[in-house]
């Protein structure tokens, strides 16, 4: 057994209708303790209506070294954006 308490990443939904957003992390031995710690640490000023806690060790992140390969190819696909297209000013609702 390790004597290091696991880290949990904390996500807070500020209000219904919004998605959960990462706010930081807490240490807790178990999931229930992590939820409570997240509540006591990150919602003291009524910042949330729902919490997610995820063991930090289970998050799989993309490698910054691959950022160019992953994200650069999207940069020149400007035809995916509506502003790419020219429509006469007198044509409405489009």
């Amino acid at each position: 057994m390790s004597n290091v308490t696991p880290i949990w990443e904390v996500f807070v939904r500020a209000k219904n209708g919004l998605s959960h957003r990462h706010v930081g992390s807490v240490h807790a031995a178990d999931a229930r303790g992590a939820v409570e710690a997240a509540r006591d640490v990150y919602t003291r000023r009524a910042e949330g209506v729902s919490l997610w806690v995820v063991p930090s060790s289970t998050i799989i992140a993309s490698d910054p070294g691959e950022a160019a390969a992953l994200f650069a190819p999207a940069e020149d696909k400007i035809y995916r954006h509506p502003t790419f297209y020219v429509v006469p000013d007198n044509v409405k609702h489009i």
């Binding site: 004597n3 807790a28 031995a29």
Partner: peptide, 11 residues
């Protein structure tokens, strides 16, 4: 802290 970890491990 040790107790909490031990309990989590048992569980």
């Amino acid at each position: 802290r040790e107790a909490a970890l031990a309990h989590a491990a048992k569980r």
